[in-house]
Structures are given as structure tokens and as C-alpha cells.
């Protein structure tokens, strides 16, 4: 390499760095400002619609890490009822196979994030915790009806100026 040309490439590179130094930031100031997450987001929690459930245990069988514990029994009319449905979110890997296995489409992934708790015991959710209420946020994963209702995901490629 000739000594004469030395430094030309570095100067070119510096020009690119300069250009990037004065452009708008692409990150967002997270807790204050939030982007819309994906409509099909697979958050680390389940939402369970009790009325549609037929207690078939397909979700528990589909789980690759056995994080769903399900105990069912028959009531006096010989109808299956759910005694226990525990979801250990500390074990859950959010793969979504339980949602796909559900024949009644009564199980949804949740769009909630920020699910940190103070003790490991609280990670184990009972059927009351995952019950579908007005405040729960079922995601559109495997559920086109939910998907159309949800707001569109913010994409980095659209180049929004987040902080302005």
C-alpha cells in the first residue's frame, strides 16, 4: 500500500460517521413513550375464555415444556369441568403451540409485557389470573378476529421521528 493514499479511506469513513451523528435518533424513550407492538405479539401470559372452554386438555398436551397443569373432573351431568389450570410463566417459552392446539379457540396469547413480579411463587398463575376480563389484552396470534381490532404495529422502516 502506497503511503500517499493512506488516510483517504479513513476520511471517507469519517464522513459517514458524521452523517449518522447529525441524523434523528431511531430509538425511543421507552417508559415515557411506547411504540405499538406487533398485533400478533406473543407475550408471556395466556388469556383464557372460560365460557367457550370444553376442558379438553389439548393445550396442556401441546406444551413442549409442560408449563400448563390441568386437572379436570366430571360433574353430576357427566360434563367435563376444569378444577385446576395453572400456568407457570417462569417455565413458559411463549411458543404459542397451546393457542394453536385449542379446538375452541378460547385460549389467546397476551399482548401484555412488563410482567415482572417480586417473588417466584407469583409467576405461577391460576385459572383466575388468566381469565379473560375487560382489562386483559388478547393478542391476534392465531386469532384473525382479534388481529383486525388491534392498532397497527409501529415499524422502524417507516422512519417516524419518535421524539418529536
Amino acid at each position: 500500500m502506497k503511503l500517499k493514499s493512506y488516510g483517504e479511506g479513513i476520511a471517507k469513513g469519517m464522513l459517514v460517521t458524521m452523517k449518522n451523528a447529525i441524523r434523528d435518533p431511531i430509538t425511543t424513550q421507552y417508559p415515557e413513550k411506547r411504540l405499538n407492538i406487533s398485533r400478533r405479539s406473543r407475550g408471556n401470559q395466556l388469556v383464557w375464555n372460560k365460557t367457550a372452554c370444553i376442558s379438553c386438555s389439548m393445550c396442556a398436551r401441546a406444551c413442549p415444556v409442560n408449563c400448563i397443569t390441568m386437572v379436570t373432573s366430571r360433574d353430576e351431568n357427566k360434563k367435563l369441568q376444569m378444577d385446576k389450570m395453572d400456568v407457570d410463566t417462569g417455565v413458559c417459552i411463549s411458543c404459542g403451540l397451546c393457542v394453536e392446539a385449542c379446538p375452541q379457540k378460547c385460549l389467546f396469547m397476551s399482548r401484555d409485557y412488563e410482567k415482572a413480579v417480586y417473588s417466584r411463587k407469583k409467576l405461577k398463575l391460576t385459572k383466575e389470573d388468566i381469565l379473560m376480563t375487560d382489562s386483559s389484552k388478547p393478542s391476534g396470534y392465531y386469532s384473525p378476529e382479534n388481529e383486525t381490532k388491534l392498532p397497527k404495529q409501529t415499524l422502524l422502516i417507516d422512519g417516524k421521528k419518535w421524539d418529536k
Partner: peptide
């Protein structure tokens, strides 16, 4: 930006679990 696209299709940024035996899990939006 690529992860955004994957997130849109299958709901997660890193562990996609998108392909299925004999197809893919969901159609693209």
C-alpha cells in the same frame, strides 16, 4: 427492521417458531 417484519408475521423478535411441518403457521398480514 428485519426483526420488525418477523415480529409482524409471527409475534416475536428472536424465537420465531414460524415454520410448521407441511407449511407455515400463519399467513402474512
Amino acid at each position: 427492521k428485519i426483526l420488525d417484519l418477523f415480529d409482524m408475521v409471527c409475534g416475536q423478535r428472536l424465537t420465531y417458531n414460524y415454520m410448521r411441518i407441511g407449511g407455515v403457521s400463519q399467513d402474512i398480514p
